[in-house]
Every structure is written in C-alpha cells, then in structure tokens.
C-alpha cells in the first residue's frame, strides 16, 4: 500500500505543479482537453465549436453557447424565463445549490426555452445547461418543456430539445418524478399534431430525462462520445451491477443498439437540422 500511496501523491503533486503553470498563464488563454490532455489555444477551440482539434472530444456547452452555434443569428427569443424554483420540501442546501447553479450558468434554471429559426425554419427550442445543478429536472424544467410542446402545437412549429441532464432533481422529491410523466404526456399530445420533434442528446443525458421526453422524439441525434443511459454510474455501482464493458452508455453504444438515429459531430449539427426540418415541414 505504502509505495502505491507515495506514487499517487507524487502524481498529484505533479498535476498541481502543472496546474499552477497553467494558472500562471493569462486567464483563459489556454484550455486543457479533459480527454487527451492536449493544451488548446482557447480562441482556436472556440472557433472549432469547442471540439478538441486533436481527439475530437466535444466539450460541454452552456445553453447560451449552444444556442449561439445552433440557431440563426439573432433569431432566439426566450420564453417562460420568469418561472422560478421553490424549495417546497425545505430540502437541505437546495437554495445554496440553486445559487451556485445561477452563478455557474448565468441562468435561473437548467432549462432555457424559446423560439428561433434554424436555416430559416421556425422552431420551438429548449436547451439544457449542465452547469445548473447538472441539468437536473425539477418543476420549472418540466413546466418549460411542457409549455414548449404546447407552444409548438399553438404555432404549428417543430420542437427541438437539446438535452444534458443527470436526471430528475431529487431536491424536489416526488414532484420531480412526476415531471417525467408530465413531459411525456406533453410529448404525446404534440405527437398527435403531425409536427416533428427532434431530441439531441449531449454529454451527459441520463436517468429521468433520458427515460422520458428525451427518448420520445421522432429523430434522436447524439453528440459523439456523449454519455447516455438510464442509471447514473454512482447509482449503478451501488446496485452492484457487474463491471460494464468499455464504451457502455456512450453515444456510439446507443447507436449500435438502435436507440438513436445518428451520432453527429457538432460542426454538422446546424446544417443537418436544417435539412431534417425541411423534410419534416408541413405541406
């Protein structure tokens, strides 16, 4: 045990030193790829839609960043921004987590909804932000999704949802679980209108969101390497599942098993969406 411990500590020290070195650089000039470790010039990374130029790792995008690269410039109009969370169970530390989520993401919930156009096609669009409490779904989140489907019905627009979520938000208890049923029912209502629903699964899309509206779309698109699945890894480990094979729950695994229509690199997303929307436009 002892030698092992020594090595580990040494490794950490080396890592710390490297981080110090990075910290010494002008703020945000360089970004390290979490997958391959490549040090990337931040401006180049931005230009490359936050995809590592060496290993194609797709960095997580905030909702605002995502919208900026996905919809026609200046077309996004936010809706339902005034919905706010209530800690109705007085769940411990919920307020502080919400405050942290706001600070992290600049949003007041993990779901942003609105209307926009993509390649000239009007859509109702929802974009999740993992920076806000892991994109977890509580009452506000579920309400925004449900209203988005209803807005799609009213305006006769397709609905696009860009997902990233750790699952239902346990701090809201049972009402969070009910958001799964509520959003799925809304998807069903929308599904009867003859309008198209496209779901985009980004890293990670798990549990309560994956097991509800995210999997109920006409077209499901995954980003490369995204973790997509039902059981979160900590929960699965607790359930003592046998060690899963490599690549388990990744986008490519889901494609192989017929659960998504395509795995699409970020740079192709907007154009492909525009083409799909053209196919699905009501005649």
């Amino acid at each position: 045990m002892a030698p092992d411990g020594w090595f580990r500590r040494k490794g950490n020290a080396a890592g710390k030193a490297a981080r110090k070195h990075l910290d010494a650089l002008p703020d945000g000039l360089w970004t390290k790829c979490p997958k391959c470790g490549e040090i990337l010039f931040s401006k180049e990374l931005e230009k490359n839609l936050k995809v590592c130029s060496k290993c194609s790792y797709h960095f997580k995008l905030g909702a605002v960043e995502r919208l900026a690269i996905m919809v026609d410039e200046g077309s996004f109009v936010e809706t339902d921004a005034g919905l706010v969370t209530i800690n109705h169970l007085s769940f411990p530390d919920y307020e502080s987590k919400l405050a942290k989520g706001c600070a992290n993401s600049g949003l007041n919930d993990g779901m942003v909804s609105g209307t926009a156009s993509i390649g000239g096609h009007s859509v109702v669009i929802c974009v999740a932000d993992f920076g806000f409490m892991g994109g977890s779904m509580g009452s506000v989140y579920g309400e925004k999704i449900s209203r988005a489907f209803e807005r799609g019905i009213e305006t006769g627009s397709p609905v696009i949802i860009v997902n990233t979520s750790g699952g239902a938000r346990m701090q809201e208890g049972l009402v969070s679980l009910m958001q799964m049923a509520k959003t799925s029912a809304a998807a069903a209502k929308f599904g009867r209108t003859g309008l198209m629903y496209i779901s985009i699964l980004t890293d990670p899309t798990m549990a309560g969101v994956h097991a509800s509206f995210a999997m109920l779309a006409d077209i499901i698109i995954a980003e490369p390497g995204a973790l997509i699945g039902f059981a979160g890894q900590r929960v699965a480990a607790q359930a003592q599942v046998i060690k899963p094979p490599q690549g388990f729950q990744l986008a490519e695994f889901q494609l192989e098993h017929g659960m998504v229509d395509m795995v699409l690199p970020r740079r192709d997303m907007k154009d492909t969406l525009a083409k799909i929307l053209a196919m699905g436009a009501r005649r």
Partner: peptide, 13 residues
C-alpha cells in the same frame, strides 16, 4: 392531472 403537477413560482418579466 399530470399537466398540473409542478411546484414553482412566476416572476414578472
């Protein structure tokens, strides 16, 4: 029934 399930507030925009 399910559409009404949700506990949240509304702030004026």
């Amino acid at each position: 029934k399910f559409r009404n399930m949700g506990i949240f507030g509304t702030e004026p925009q």
